[in-house]
Design a protein around this nucleic acid. Structure first.
Length: 590
RNA sequence: GCGCCGGUAGCUCAGGUGGAUAGAGCAUCGGAUUUCUAAUCCGAAUGUCGCAGGUUCGAGUCCUGCCCGGCGCGCCA
């Protein structure tokens, strides 16, 4: 079942072909319902090219088109828009054709899988293991998980790569500090527990700054670590494991699954990066790879320094050490050559834009990545405090992600408190779901590139484009189904759907847009397109079910009752599926 | 200095490939309703889309210049 917009587009293309024109049908969703559901904007542009009047050309297209199985007779409006309004019988047939939801929760709503599936790498979250995850890691984790879910849903193979920072210079300091404070780690590395990584880091840093001996020790430890000293490596490993346990407590809570592949994993590949680049440098016909001030560099071109000189990507520092360009190039080698990736998406803050522009340009320049292969930096803005300033604790420290989630869940508990139907356990469960959903949804409903202001009142409001509203809309439909005492699984078998009331038409049309929304999100990777759609769907349902302008459901005549209950069920399924793709779990009652 | 991102209603924010009278939520005002969960629905009001030019049938969207805010610009990641 392909998106309706493409079906209509194909019909317009055929009509154009019939009158001897090969052109893009320029199909779009109508901005205003009074113009119908879809419109073709092709006539205006083509008319000029063909030396004809736009409206005449539009008329010729309409005369040549066959769409009576999909919509009402198309109309021509304004300068030459061709408007299409889907017919109720088509809407009904299309909805009726959606197969029942499978038991295992993998509902696809009748959507097909990608014809040419990609192998997609999504680089997400990627915290530094030295410290605890903080508010700055929220967006990458949540956005990355969302696009990974959408791409998986479309049938692509997705690798979620958690490129954690576990190999930087600060690990010398941390391991040296660990050796002092937790000497038994050397004997029993598995038993290491650090309750508060953040303060552990602060303590280590304080000692590093105050104690010359410790500073020296730290530096020696880095060298020992990176040259493979088994004792140091063991302590380092214990520290990383412990740190990852902190991270995964959060990932588990958020329902995010990913593969940890830290910088250390790429250690050997970084050597390989250097070997290949030195070879290119020495070959004589890759002048963009060369040494500069003692550092091995790639000059991708198009980037300049403050003084206007060509800006290189530094791949090996003049002291022989590696930096993040080295490990990022190593990830590209691994992803392209080992994982066989056909699309790579880096979900990283927008402050890194120039770095990724240079990295991608360099990787293409040296031929490690084909020109056509998509390398995408999915860049996002900062999370700010509600006053628009940087999000800090009262003391000016970083805000731990764990604390933010805890606070949201606590506030959610307050929101649902008045409902006495739920047991204490159920209430806890609902609060957990609602609180986490609120944080995720609020993040995902903003456009990526701009900063947004973190506001618990907003994200936990029952009104407006929020998680609680969406979850309530879903729970409400489930409540209707319970009250109607109809098995909504059995309901789907061989049963006709009737679409005639304006509220039914509106809701049915909205339901069938799900396919094209998913397609858009999979291509452009804008989660807020999905949240906006789900919000509109929920509003359409409210009108559908409204006493004044909607239809009766439970007490409607039997045939309409079953049809409408099925529409309710389809709405619930689209909401559940859409929210699932956002990484949000639904609840049956709240 | 160069580059990138943002500037849209009182507030928070949306506005695929240029499309019709620029939207939503909140807040404000007015109306419906003894509820198939009112956590609702209908209506009203509110805009120099940062400014100025340009491109064209048509510009919030594309181009040029400028203003404001944020970020980045050689060995930290």
């Amino acid at each position: 079942m392909k998106p309706i917009i493409h079906e209509l587009g194909a019909r317009v293309r055929d009509a154009l072909a019939a009158i001897g024109v090969d052109a893009d049908p320029l199909l779009a969703r109508s901005g205003d319902p009074k113009f119908g559901d879809y419109q073709s904007n092709a006539a205006m542009g083509l008319a000029k090219k063909l030396g004809r009047k736009p409206r005449d050309l539009a008329q010729a297209i309409v005369d040549a088109i066959t769409v009576d199985d999909l919509c009402e007779p198309p109309t021509i409006a304004g300068p030459g828009f061709i408007n299409f309004r889907l017919s109720p019988s088509f809407l009904a047939a299309r909805l009726a054709a959606i197969p029942p939801a499978p038991e295992d929760g993998s509902d696809r709503l009748g959507l097909g899988s990608a014809e040419n599936p990609d192998v997609v790498v999504v680089d997400l979250s990627s915290p530094n293991l030295a410290k605890e995850m903080h508010i700055g890691h929220l967006r990458s984790t949540v956005i990355g998980d969302c696009v990974a879910r959408v791409l998986e849903f479309q049938g692509h193979t997705v690798h979620r790569e958690n490129h954690v920072g576990d190999w930087g210079t600060q690990f010398g300091m941390l391991v040296a500090y660990l050796k002092r404070t937790e000497p038994e780690v050397v004997e029993n590395p598995d038993t290491l527990e650090i309750g508060d990584l953040e303060s552990f880091y602060v303590e280590a840093k304080a000692l590093f700054d105050a104690d010359e001996d410790f500073k020296t020790e730290s530096r020696e430890t880095v060298v020992a670590l990176q040259s493979g000293d088994p004792v140091i490596r063991r302590i380092w490993k214990a520290f990383c494991d412990e740190s990852l346990r902190h991270c995964h407590a959060i990932y588990d809570r958020l329902g995010v699954r990913l593969i940890d592949r830290g910088e250390s994993f790429y250690n050997d590949l970084m050597d390989e990066v250097i070997i290949r680049l030195e070879k290119a440098r020495d070959s004589g016909d890759h002048d963009y790879v060369r040494d500069s001030d003692g550092a091995l560099c790639i000059f991708p071109g198009g980037f300049t320094t403050r003084d206007g000189d060509p800006l290189p990507l530094l791949v090996r520092k003049s002291d022989g050490g590696f930096n993040y360009a080295t490990s990022d190039l190593a990830t590209i080698l691994h992803r392209v050559e080992q994982l066989k990736a056909t699309r790579i998406i880096y979900v990283v803050g927008i402050t890194q834009k120039q770095h990724f522009d240079m990295l991608f340009a360099a990787a293409r320049k040296v031929g490690w990545v084909d020109q056509e292969m998509p390398l995408e930096h999915l860049a996002f803005g900062n999370v700010l405090a509600s006053d628009g300033r940087p999000f800090k604790t009262r003391e000016g420290g970083v805000v731990k992600l764990k604390d933010v989630l805890e606070q949201a869940v606590a506030r959610a508990r307050g929101v649902i408190e008045k409902d006495s139907d739920l047991s204490a356990d159920q209430a806890d469960n609902v609060a957990e779901t609602v609180g986490l959903a609120a944080v995720k949804y609020f993040d995902l409903c903003h456009s990526l590139k701009s900063d947004y202001k973190f506001n618990l009142d907003h994200m936990l409001a029952m009104e407006g484009n929020t998680a609680p509203y969406m979850l309530y809309a879903y729970a409400r439909i489930r409540s209707i189904q319970r009250k109607a005492k109809v098995d909504h699984v059995q309901l789907t078998a061989d049963m006709q759907i009737t679409i005639e009331h304006p509220a039914e038409i509106e809701l049915a049309t909205k339901l069938l847009q799900f396919a094209e929304v998913i397609e858009t999100v999979g291509r452009d990777l804008y989660p807020n397109v999905l949240t906006d759609y789900l919000f509109e769907l929920a509003k359409s349902f409210s009108r559908f079910y409204d006493k004044k302008i909607g239809v009766r459901v439970i007490d409607a005549p039997e045939d309409l009752r079953l049809s409408r209950l099925r529409i309710c069920d389809l709405t619930a399924r689209v909401l559940k599926t859409g929210l699932r793709l956002l990484g949000i779990e639904t609840i049956e009652r709240m």
